[in-house]
Design a protein around this nucleic acid. Sequence first.
RNA 1: GCGCCUGUAGCUCAGCGGAUAGAGCGUGACGUUGCGGACGUUAAGGUCGGGGGUUCAAUUCCCUCCAGGCGCGCCA
Length: 539
Amino acid sequence: MVKDQILADLKKVIGDLGFLAIDIVLSIPKNPQFGDYTTNLALQLAKLEGVSNKQSPTEIANEIIEKLKSFDSAQDNFSEIKIAGSGFINFFVKAEKLAQDLKEILEKDKNFGSSSLGEDKKARVEYVSANPTGPLHMGNARGGPLGDVIANVLLSQGYEVIREFLNNDVGEQIKALGATIRAKYHKDLPEEKQYKGGYIDDLVKNLGADMEGKSDEETGMMAVALLHQEILADCHSMGIKFDLVVHESDLRKEAAQVLAQLKKAGVLKEKEGALWLAPKDEFLKDRETVIQKSDGGYTYFTADIVYHKIKFESGADPIIDVFGSNHHGHVSRLQAAASALGFDPKRLKVILYQYVRVKRGSDIVKMSKRAGNFITAREVLDEVGVDAFRFYLLRFAPQTHMDFDLELVKEQSSKNPVFYVQYAHARMSNILLKSQITNSKFQNVDFGQLQTEYELNLIKHLLYFPDLVSELAINLQVHQLTEYAISLADFFHKFYETCPVLSAETSGLVKARLALVKSCKITLANTLKLLGVSAPERM
RNA sequence: GCGCCUGUAGCUCAGCGGAUAGAGCGUGACGUUGCGGACGUUAAGGUCGGGGGUUCAAUUCCCUCCAGGCGCGCCA
């Protein structure tokens, strides 16, 4: 591809000229007057070499350009290489060279955007992990599509991926839930101590006589088992399946052994009758946390240390946890524990997402299982459909405090950008269907026929896709995929309005534009696949 | 009080060291004897929360103030 050629050439040039070998960033400028590709290489070099080399960015840029122009590949690829601004180098690629790169998309087809970047590497992604003391609500639900798409992206880059879920099936919360259900059944617990919400009544009904003679804890465990299945079913409806469900009750069995290890590492201390994790790092002072309660029982934190020890020992890198933002305090403690156990905490990457604030019109609905006034994922899912649901939640960076206005989303679901994107895909499919072209006919295409700015913009955008996906495997900012899909649809619609495909002037142009449409369809379908959103042939 | 996150167009949000700050929705005006109008074109709308600083270059990085969300040892 042209881009790879430019990078290779630039690398050679800075070597030949004796500059520092730095990472070259080649980007697509927003404004077409600055060319098809641009680099700030000269500015970077001037800064880094400033002491020993008094050259200005402009001088360096000129030197690079001159050297570059002596290469055959450069003669071949560019109509122009220009210096601009205070030292940017802008590349103007010959149209036919850009268009020829479409061949690669057509050849790779479903694999366009995949790579072997993560070959031989393992990744583990934990997400949702909702407490089974109530139905899955919109707060936790955000982590579902997020973790799922992160896993999809890593998978596409060749990583071996485990999608996992931690089920918190033991602890005080289970007793509390059990107590509430039993009390409701026996009608003997004061109102203010009870969990609220319609699901409690359902549980009372479902468990019914099975509760007879059972303790709070036993009742809670039965309820939690039911709720856990419900949560997994909700995830399934969101298009999410897990490879592994880990139960906290199993993790606790190994707690004693891990505790011994931590004790050996000298990071435990006794205080107030309990055992605390207290690494000797003044930075971690406020992170001291109970790891074994004064009654001898373990905490959630203990189980999670065991869990992460298992993750680290599996050799996975990265280990990704997608948590709600209220877990932020937990993260640093977990890293401290991992570190004490001798693991590199940098392997653990935690994505903290802010809770979705659900509104009904201007009324804010608070998320709390205990209070019972939460919006379930199921409720919203049934209302807007899985495609709109996922796309909407995936549109925004995890750290944004997003507002999900039920009335707006329900009312405007046909105006949701997901339909704009899907419509573009349906249009592409329709053109190809009408043309009756088969894949084998995309041989001997004269790509040089594609010359309008609409066509070239579209092509450049398509060619950016593989770079985007491999970047996402590193920075995990997968919401950029929705942005990408929207702008691809945008470029396509503009092309569609101005460039007739089936009725183009010559058969050569028809064929070239069909090849372009096919490339668009491949790329958009691959994008939607990563997002877990359907790519309809017709709507 | 301390910690994490956020403050960008009327609304929901992108952009997060680069050259004229973008999209969708909403509002106004247009467009096809052409492959699906769930489309396109165009207009209005911004002191990028305020103030300092670093840099050739700051919405982007640092400090501070203001506002909001979340969390803060025997819950998970």
